[in-house]
Simulated scan of single mutants.
Amino acid sequence: MAKVVVIGVAGEHGLWVADLDAGTVTPLPHAATGHLRTVVDLRGAGASVIKGVDVAIAVRSTASVASGHMEG
C-alpha cells in the first residue's frame, strides 16, 4: 500500500505531499523533472492524473467531511 500521496487541488497552483505514516501534509518544493514534470505539465493543461488512488473528494472543510456533505 502507498504510504505517500502527491496531491494537487484543481484551480490551485502547486502540489502537496501527504505522508500517511507521519500524518503530515507539506508543500512539494519545485516540481520536478522526469515523470512528475510531465504530470505538472498535463495538470497545467487541465488534465487530471490519477494513479493508485481509488477515492479523492475535495471539500471546503473537515466539518463537511464529518457531517457527510461531500458536495465540495
Score class of each variant (00 low, 15 high):
residue 30 H to E: 15
residue 60 R to N: 15
residue 58 A to T: 06
residue 21 D to L: 01
residue 49 V to R: 06
residue 2 A to G: 11
residue 8 G to E: 06
residue 69 H to G: 08
residue 34 G to V: 10
residue 54 D to Q: 12
residue 8 G to S: 09
residue 49 V to A: 08
residue 55 V to C: 08
residue 60 R to E: 15
residue 44 G to M: 12
residue 63 A to M: 13
residue 38 T to P: 00
residue 13 H to C: 02
residue 54 D to T: 12
residue 13 H to K: 09
residue 54 D to G: 10
residue 25 V to W: 00
residue 70 M to Q: 03
residue 21 D to W: 00
residue 65 V to D: 04
residue 8 G to V: 01
residue 66 A to I: 03
residue 54 D to H: 12
residue 25 V to R: 10
residue 46 G to F: 07
residue 22 A to S: 08
residue 59 V to D: 00
residue 10 A to T: 13
residue 19 D to F: 00
residue 2 A to W: 00
residue 18 A to H: 02
residue 13 H to N: 09
residue 28 L to K: 08
residue 71 E to Y: 05
residue 35 H to A: 15
residue 17 V to R: 02
residue 19 D to W: 00
residue 31 A to W: 05
residue 13 H to T: 11
residue 14 G to I: 00
residue 24 T to C: 01
residue 8 G to T: 04
residue 42 L to A: 14
residue 57 I to N: 08
residue 12 E to A: 11
residue 48 S to Y: 10
residue 31 A to H: 07
residue 16 W to S: 03
residue 22 A to D: 08
residue 11 G to Y: 01
residue 15 L to C: 06
residue 14 G to N: 04
residue 29 P to N: 10
residue 37 R to A: 15
residue 40 V to H: 11
residue 38 T to M: 13
residue 23 G to D: 04
residue 53 V to R: 04
residue 38 T to A: 14
residue 46 G to H: 07
residue 32 A to I: 01
residue 42 L to C: 07
residue 47 A to E: 14
residue 41 D to C: 01
residue 16 W to T: 00
residue 57 I to Y: 05
residue 42 L to H: 15
residue 50 I to N: 12
residue 65 V to Q: 03
residue 61 S to R: 11
residue 62 T to Q: 05
residue 29 P to L: 13
residue 13 H to G: 07
residue 52 G to Q: 05
residue 6 V to R: 01
residue 59 V to E: 05
residue 63 A to D: 15
residue 35 H to T: 15
residue 16 W to A: 04
residue 70 M to D: 07
residue 45 A to D: 06
residue 9 V to L: 14
